[in-house]
Write a protein that binds this DNA or RNA. Structure first.
Lengths: 208, 208
DNA sequence: GCGCGGATATGACATTTGTCATGTCACAAA
DNA sequence: TTTGTGACATGACAAATGTCATATCCGCGC
C-alpha cells in the first residue's frame, strides 16, 4: 500500500514513516509539510491513502483536502489530529474524508490505513463518541413530567406554529377564551411570560 | 486477537471464520446465531471484538448489544449488515457500537477488526456517506436575500429568544417604539403576522 | 344524592403588540 | 447647498394577548 504523509512537524512525519514501513505492508512514497505540498504530492504520487495532519501553518489540512477531492473525488484522506477539535470533525466528515484519528495512537494508525484502503472509514474513539450529540437526538420530551395534559400539548404545538388564539380556537372547535385559558395555564406551568416564549420553549426544549 | 462471530446464517458464520482465521492474526473463539447466544458467548469468552449481524430472528443485534454494553461498557462491537439500513446506523452509533460494515466486503472485515481492537471505529463507505445528511447542515440562511439588515437580524434573534419589545429596547439601548418599528418592518418583509410567527420562522427557516 | 375536580366557557380588565404618520439628526450624493 | 436617505424616535390607535373571577356541565367516588 502506497501512502503519502503530510505533517508540518518533521519529526512526526519521520516517526510515522518509520513505524508504518516497519509493518512491511506500507510504503511511504513521499512526505510533505504543508497544504500546498499535499496537493502537489497527491497529484504526483496518487497514493492509495493520504495521511495528513489537519492543522498546519498556512493552508489547513481541510482546505488542502477539499482541493484534492475536487480534482480526485475518490481520494482517500485520513486525517491526523493531536486532540479532537470538534469543529473539524464535522467539516472533515462532510467534506468526504475517510477518517480522523489521533496522532498519539501510533499502533492504531497502520490498521486504520488498511481499513481505509479497503474503502472503510475510521475514527478514533474520542471522536466517534462525540457524533451522537451532533446528531439529532430523539430524546422524547416528557410532557407528563411537566404536568402538561394532552390538550395543552396540542395547544402548545399550535402556538408553536404561529397560530393566533382565534385560529387555534377555530382549529380545535373551542372558544377563544378557552384557548386563552389553556395558553395561560401553559405559561404558568412552564414559568413563561407570553406565547412567543412558549414557541421558543417548544423549539428549544421540546422539539430540539 | 480473539473474536466471537454471531450470525444467524450458519453459512455466513462459517465463511467468516474461515476467512478471518486465514489471516493468521485472528482467532474465532466461538460462534453463535442469536442475540441470546451473543450475550452468553460474550460473557463466556470476553473476546477482544465481537462481530455480530445486526438483524437476526428474535432479539436483534442491537438489543443484544445493549445488554452486552450494559454489563461490559467497554465491549467492542462491530456490526455486520447486508445493506445499510439507515435506521440502525444512528441507533448503533448512539448505543456505542464500534463500527458498522457491510458483510459483502469480505476483504475489509479483517482490517476493520484490527482497527476496532486498537480502539478505533470503522464504518463502511456507504454508511459514512449518509452521516453528513444526518447531521445539522450549516446551510447558512441568507439574510441579504430577504433584505434583512444587520440590525433587523439582531432584533429577530432577540425576538426568537422570547424577549419583549421593552427588553429588546433595553438590551440594545433603543427606544421601545423603535424596536416595534423594526419588528413591524421584519414582519412586513417576511410576510408574517406577529412576533410569535417571527420566532417560529427563525427556528424553522433560519436556524433549522 | 352530594360534592369534587376537570373541561369548557364568558366577561372585564390591564398590558403588550403591531401599524402608521410624523419628526429629528447625521451624512453622503448631487 | 440642497436633497435625499437611513437610523432612531415619538405618539396615537386598534387589535391581540394574558389574567382572573366566575359559571356551567359532566362523570366519579362515597
Amino acid at each position: 500500500m502506497k501512502i503519502v504523509v503530510i505533517d508540518d512537524d518533521k519529526l512526526v512525519a519521520i516517526s510515522l514513516k518509520t513505524i508504518l514501513e516497519a509493518t512491511g505492508r506500507i510504503t511511504v512514497a513521499a512526505m510533505g509539510s504543508s497544504g500546498a505540498e499535499a496537493i502537489r504530492l497527491y497529484e504526483a504520487e496518487k497514493p492509495d491513502v493520504m495521511l495528513m495532519d489537519i492543522r498546519m501553518d498556512g493552508m489547513t489540512g481541510l482546505e488542502a483536502g477539499e482541493q484534492i477531492l475536487k480534482a480526485s473525488p475518490d481520494a482517500k484522506l485520513l486525517y491526523l489530529t493531536t486532540f479532537s477539535d470538534d469543529e473539524y470533525i464535522v467539516k472533515a466528515l462532510r467534506m468526504g474524508a475517510k477518517g480522523y484519528i489521533l496522532k498519539q495512537d501510533f499502533e492504531g494508525i497502520a490498521p486504520a490505513l488498511e481499513a481505509v484502503m479497503r474503502g472503510q472509514s475510521v475514527f478514533g474513539e474520542t471522536i466517534i463518541s462525540r457524533l451522537p450529540e451532533m446528531m439529532k437526538q430523539p430524546e422524547t420530551y416528557d410532557y407528563a413530567a411537566h404536568g402538561i395534559s394532552e390538550k395543552e400539548r396540542e395547544i402548545m404545538e399550535l402556538v408553536a406554529e404561529g397560530l393566533s388564539n382565534k385560529e387555534i380556537a377555530a382549529r380545535l372547535c373551542l372558544g377563544e377564551g378557552t384557548v386563552r385559558n389553556y395558553v395561560s395555564e401553559l405559561l404558568d406551568k412552564l414559568s413563561l411570560r407570553d406565547r412567543t416564549q412558549l414557541a421558543v420553549y417548544y423549539y428549544t426544549e421540546v422539539k430540539a
